[in-house]
Structures are given as C-alpha cells and as structure tokens.
Simulated scan of single mutants.
Amino acid sequence: MKYFTIAELCRSSTADNKRIDNTPAPEIREKLQTLIEELLDPIREAWGKPIRVNSGYRCPALNQAVGGVSTSQHQKGEAADLNAGDPTKNRELFDKIVEMQKTGRIAFDQLIDEAHYRWVHISYRKTGNRGQVLHL
C-alpha cells in the first residue's frame, strides 16, 4: 500500500460525532487492502496528485447514519468515494479511471459520478466485477 491506508478508509467524522465504532472485521480489512492494491493506489499513481477519500468503509450503523443504501458496497469494504479537489478535477479523475479501465490497467465493479462530479464512487469485488460506469 503506497498511497492509501486502511485507517484512512475507515476514518469518519460522522462516526466520531455519533460515537459509532467503525472498526472493520478481519475479512473487511482484507477487502479494503485489496481495494487499495487493485484500484486506489494504481489510480493515485496514474493521477500523479493527491486524492482524498471522502468515505470508505462504513459499518452498518455508520452507513445508516449517513443515509447509505442497505446494499452499499461501503459496508463490505469494497468501495470508496474519492475527491480530487473540485467538480472539474473530479471529472478529470473520472475520465482518467475510465481510460485506465479501457486500456486494461484496472478493473472495477462500479465507477459512479455522484451529483455532477461532487465526488467519484469506485468499487471492486474480488470476482465478478461488472465494469459499470454510471452518472447519478
């Protein structure tokens, strides 16, 4: 893990404020490590500039507190919401990720432009990645 840490993916001001224990179980930690190794670090390397994680792992209580859907991959340690600084930079990051997928450098389950590039959601599954590119 070159750029991102599991601790960074578990950090949450909402969890802190609501006193929610967002410590991942060992199997979730393993998925977070895979997410970093397969997607986040390669994306950061190709991007060449810092990327902030808005939201990574969310235990069920935290997921509910932030209004996440019950099927959220964040709860499984398979997703992260990224921010490159502003909507223009997030769109550039999104386009870079699509290019990396098209050239076979990475595979992802879902890449989602959230709310006109307010942030970029990306997820990864060990098997069965769908390669979906969505705009919500």
Results as ranks from 00 to 15, higher is better:
Met100Pro: 11
Leu136Ser: 15
Lys96Pro: 01
Ala61Ile: 11
Leu32Tyr: 02
Leu82Asp: 09
Pro60Glu: 12
Ala79Leu: 12
Leu62His: 12
Glu30Gln: 00
Phe108Glu: 06
Thr88Gln: 15
Thr5Arg: 00
His135Gly: 00
Leu32His: 04
Asp113Asn: 15
Ser55Ala: 15
Thr127Phe: 02
Pro50Ala: 14
His135Ser: 06
Asp109Ala: 09
Gln101Gly: 15
Glu78Asp: 14
Lys18Ile: 10
Pro24Thr: 02
Val120Met: 09
Thr34Tyr: 09
His121Gly: 00
Arg130Tyr: 08
Ile112Glu: 06
Thr5Ile: 06
Glu27Trp: 05
Ala61His: 08
Leu9Gly: 09
His74Phe: 02
Asp16Asn: 07
His135Lys: 05
Ala84Asp: 00
Arg130Cys: 09
Ala25Cys: 03
Lys31His: 11
Tyr3Gly: 02
Tyr3Asn: 02
Ser12Tyr: 11
Glu30Cys: 00
Asp41Val: 07
Asn54Tyr: 13
Ile106Tyr: 08
Gly85Ser: 00
Gly48Glu: 03
Arg52His: 10
Thr71His: 07
Gln33Pro: 01
Leu39Tyr: 14
Gly128Met: 07
Pro42Glu: 13
Ala25Lys: 14
Thr127Glu: 01
Ala80His: 01
Ala61Val: 07
Asp16Gly: 05
Phe4Ile: 03
Gln73Asp: 04
Arg125Gln: 05
Phe94Thr: 09
Arg19Ile: 07
Thr71Cys: 07
Trp47His: 05
Met1Leu: 01
Arg130Phe: 01
Arg118Cys: 08
Tyr57Met: 03
Asp41Gln: 12
Lys2Leu: 13
Gly104Ile: 01
Ala107Glu: 15
Thr103Met: 07
Phe108Ala: 10
Glu38Trp: 02
Gly56Tyr: 10
Thr23Gln: 07
Pro26Asp: 10
Ala25Ile: 04
Leu134Met: 11
Gly48Ala: 05
Tyr57Cys: 08
Tyr124His: 13
Ala25Tyr: 01
Ile51Lys: 02
Lys126Ala: 02
